[in-house]
Amino acid sequence: MSPRELAVLLTLLAEARELTNADLLAVAGVTLDGTPRRRLNELGLVDSEKVGRALVHELTEKGAQWCAAELARPRPDKAGSHYAGALYAVLAGLHRHLETSGQLLTDVFVPDVAGQILRKYTEITKGKPDQVRLAELRNRLPHIPPADFSDAMARLADRDGVHVRAEADRKTLTEDDHASAIVLGGTPRHLLTVEAVR
Rank of each mutant, 00 (worst) to 15 (best):
L173T: 04
D148W: 06
E136V: 04
I144E: 09
D176W: 00
E136M: 13
S150D: 11
R165G: 15
F149W: 07
K171C: 15
T174G: 00
L156M: 06
N139S: 14
P145L: 11
H143T: 07
E167K: 10
P146I: 00
R165F: 09
N139D: 12
T172I: 13
A166H: 13
D160P: 07
A166Y: 01
L137C: 02
D158S: 12
R159C: 02
R155D: 08
D151G: 15
M153Y: 02
K171P: 14
E175D: 06
D151L: 14
A152E: 02
E136C: 06
L137H: 11
R170H: 14
D158L: 14
D160W: 02
P145R: 02
R138S: 11
G161E: 02
H163W: 12
R155A: 12
V164K: 13
A157I: 06
L156S: 05
S180V: 00
A181K: 07
V164Q: 14
E136D: 15
K171L: 13
L173R: 13
R140K: 03
E167W: 08
T174W: 04
A154Y: 06
A179I: 00
F149D: 03
M153K: 08
P145V: 00
R165K: 14
I144V: 08
F149M: 03
E175C: 00
S150R: 04
L156P: 01
G161Y: 10
V164F: 03
A157E: 09
A154H: 07
H178P: 00
E136I: 11
A166S: 12
I144Y: 04
S180P: 06
P146L: 10
P146G: 07
M153R: 01
H178F: 03
P142Q: 10
E167S: 12
D169S: 09
A166N: 04
K171E: 15
P142M: 09
L141N: 05
R138A: 11
E175G: 13
I182V: 15
A152I: 07
A166E: 10
H143I: 04
P145W: 10
R140Q: 04
V164E: 01
D148M: 06
K171V: 15
I144S: 05
E136R: 09
